[in-house]
């Protein structure tokens, strides 16, 4: 799991979350100290005390990122992305949106990436619409 932690930290940094008592199930994961911008909820934010370590997440700057794995599933769903997986965290200086596994895994496995994007307002479908053949 050593390497997973780094991966999770990057992945979950995408959901900047406030402590939420309603999340009863989450397994709160203490991220090892070598992950500079990640702090477990019990620990006060330490970022201010680390002047040289603020570039790890390039566009987010000095943020306190709470990492929690709220769910373990076999298909990659973590239930951390806002909007049911339709509104992944963005930091780029351009209009951009991300659909994550939280949404993709809940679509029919026969649908495709384009069909998933049709669930946003700006992507309009123009094909013979069928759940398993939207790209044809």
């Amino acid at each position: 799991m050593r390497k997973t932690n780094g991966f999770l930290a990057v992945l979950l940094a995408s959901s900047v979350s406030l402590p939420d008592p309603a999340d009863a199930r989450p397994i709160h994961k203490k991220v090892p100290a070598h992950q500079p911008t990640a702090a477990s909820p019990a620990v006060p934010p330490k970022t201010a005390a680390k002047p040289q370590s603020q570039h790890s997440f390039s566009a987010t700057g000095t943020e306190t990122v709470e990492v929690h794995v709220s769910m373990r599933t076999a298909n990659g769903v973590t239930n951390t992305t806002p909007g049911g997986g339709l509104m992944g965290r963005q930091t780029a200086a351009r209009s951009q949106s991300t659909i994550t596994r939280d949404f993709i895994a809940k679509q029919s496995p026969t649908s495709n990436a384009i069909a998933c994007q049709h669930r946003s307002a700006w992507s309009v479908e123009h094909r013979n619409v069928h759940p398993w053949l939207a790209a044809g």
């Binding site: 298909n75 990659g76 992944g88 780029a92 351009r94 209009s95 951009q96 949106s97 991300t98 659909i99 994550t100 596994r101 993709i104 895994a105 679509q107 496995p109 026969t110 649908s111 495709n112 990436a113 998933c116 994007q117 946003s120 700006w122 992507s123």
Partner: peptide, 15 residues
Amino acid sequence: VDTDNIQSVTVAQGA
């Protein structure tokens, strides 16, 4: 790529 193997899909609508 199969949908089962897609982690995420990001759309930059303009730029």
